[in-house]
Amino acid sequence: MSSTIALPSIYNSISVKIPPHIPLTQTELVEFPAFKSWISRLTSSLRSDNNPDGYTLRHLEILSVVRFGSTRIGFLMLNAEVRDADDKVSLPGTVLLRGPSVGILALLHPEGTPKNNLYVILVLQPRLAGATTSMAEIPAGMLDDHGSFAGAAAKEIEEEVGITISEDKLINLSELAIQSSPLLDKDQTKESIGLANAPPISESPNQETQKQNLDGLFSSAGLLDEVITYHAFVHEIPEDELEQWKGRLTGLRDKGERITLKLVKFDELWKATRDSKALCAWALWKGLEEAARLPY
């Protein structure tokens, strides 16, 4: 028999249906970081003045839970019932929660060559969701327990590329891009406050809360909550070492990673991969470079 729980009052005490075959407690749900962030942003967005149709969240139903190990929640899929004030329109509600990620534009610059003579390090690895055993993409990974986006990016670079780099050497491309944009369109219509630094929902209504800095880009906002923050770095190498980077094997074998490195000229990246993360990072670099906002 299914169980029904109620979210805390700060989330309007919305009811949540949990089917009997899904072992999930109320505490696990509300403490799952991806759910906590998503429900906070959504609740804030629905309360804002940028909700002219009066959409409200009526009900949630958990569809599935994937755990990493025996206890930790990795992914959670749910269905959210959101309807307008006249109860005539229902929004598509299937959501897959996995939390934030980082993507890294790892660049090699042969010493003594022009500054724009850059090579992108791509990683070739199996991707079952893409039905391939060799997807060419930029290094990326979930935030997990790294504590910060920069820390997660540095860790992914070390694991997937084999370069140890300090966090202060990273260039936060998505943050630089969003800092230069007020998130307004040509008609001065605001994006949902849920995206543009929404104040998080607080258990203490009278307590001032800091805005959430959402400086990443959504990978597929029609289904995923995932926001990817893009970083870049330039690694200087002797020109005669360039060939040594091609075909190098990396990855954490104990985690099932088997990664081969591939080098691509930066200007040719847009046609050398089907990885949208790579194209986003490439476009951010090009845009910031053109706007003279790139610290390189």
Rank of each mutant, 00 (worst) to 15 (best):
D86S: 15
A281I: 04
I259Y: 01
V161I: 08
K17Y: 08
A278L: 06
F32P: 00
L24T: 04
L288I: 03
L269N: 04
N12K: 13
A34F: 07
G141W: 01
V264M: 10
P295S: 07
K17F: 10
K277T: 14
L284T: 03
A136Q: 14
A6Y: 15
T164P: 01
G93E: 11
G247S: 11
T71E: 11
W245L: 08
S40Y: 01
G256L: 05
R127G: 00
S101H: 05
K36D: 05
A281M: 05
K271E: 04
I10A: 06
A283E: 11
I18V: 01
H146L: 02
R83G: 11
D185C: 04
D187A: 07
R41L: 13
I237R: 03
G141H: 01
N213S: 13
H21A: 08
L294E: 01
L242C: 02
A129N: 14
D185V: 04
L217D: 00
K262G: 02
E239F: 00
S166I: 06
M1C: 02
R83V: 15
R258L: 12
D49I: 14
T25M: 05
D84S: 08
E268N: 09
S45A: 07
M142A: 07
T273V: 13
I18Y: 02
P100N: 02
K88D: 10
L107E: 00
E156W: 00
V120Y: 04
I193Y: 01
D240A: 00
T113A: 07
F266N: 03
I14G: 12
T273Q: 08
Y119T: 04
P182W: 00
S3G: 08
I18N: 00
D254Q: 12
M142Q: 09
I5D: 00
L224G: 06
S181W: 11
D53A: 08
V30M: 09
S15E: 12
W245I: 12
S192H: 05
L118V: 07
A136H: 12
L108K: 06
A272L: 10
A136D: 13
S202R: 09
L284H: 02
L57G: 13
L263K: 09
P23H: 13
E289A: 10
L176R: 05
T94P: 05
W285K: 09
S37W: 03
I10W: 02
Y55Q: 06
S220P: 10
V95I: 08
G162I: 06
I193L: 05
V66N: 10
A85E: 10
T43M: 10
